[in-house]
Amino acid sequence: MSDQDLRVGLIGAGMMGSDHARRIHERVSGARLVAVGDPDADRARAAVEGIPGARAETDPIGVIGASDVDAVVIASPGPVHEPLLLAAVERGIPVLCEKPLTPDSKSSLRVVQAEADRGRKLVQVGFMRRFDPEFLDLKALLDDSELGEPLLLHCAHRNAAHPPGFTTNMLINDSVVHEFDTTRWLLGDELTAVSVRQQGLVRSDDAGIPQIVTIETARGVLVDVEIFVHCRFGYQVRCEAVCEHGTATVGGDTGMRTHTAGRWGGQVTADFRPRFRAAFDAEFQRWAHAAREGGIDGASAWDGYAAAAACEAGVQAQETGQRAEISLAARPGIYD
Rank of each mutant, 00 (worst) to 15 (best):
K121N: 07
V221T: 14
M128H: 15
Q267I: 09
P83A: 08
A308F: 02
R22Y: 05
R238F: 10
R118I: 08
C311V: 00
W302P: 08
R27F: 13
Q199R: 13
A330D: 13
T192A: 08
D271R: 09
Q236T: 15
L138A: 10
R130G: 00
A41S: 14
T254R: 12
L85T: 05
E115V: 06
S29N: 12
E190L: 07
A41Q: 15
A161T: 12
R197H: 07
Q322Y: 01
S175H: 04
V34R: 12
Y305N: 01
M1N: 06
R257V: 14
A75H: 13
G333F: 01
G234M: 12
D19Y: 15
A261G: 10
G65I: 01
A282Q: 13
L201I: 03
A140N: 11
R197F: 00
G92C: 10
A207P: 00
E179Y: 13
R129P: 02
E90N: 10
P60R: 02
T183V: 14
V250R: 13
L171E: 01
E98W: 15
D143G: 07
V315S: 00
A290Y: 08
R277K: 09
V112K: 07
T102Q: 00
E149T: 10
D336C: 06
C231V: 11
G321D: 03
V112D: 02
A309M: 07
S76H: 00
A248G: 02
A116K: 09
R91K: 12
R184T: 09
V112F: 11
A193D: 14
I64Y: 04
A282G: 05
D104F: 01
G119A: 07
G37C: 06
Q113Y: 04
R275K: 12
C243G: 05
T58G: 06
K99G: 07
R257D: 07
G266P: 08
E149V: 08
I215Y: 03
R120P: 02
A279K: 09
V315K: 00
G321R: 08
L141A: 11
S300P: 05
L96M: 14
A193S: 15
R263N: 08
G262C: 06
R238C: 10
D42I: 07
D5H: 10
E115P: 05
G200K: 00
A44H: 12
A241E: 04
S29D: 15
A282T: 14
R323P: 00
Q285R: 10
P79L: 11
V48I: 14
V315E: 00
A301T: 03
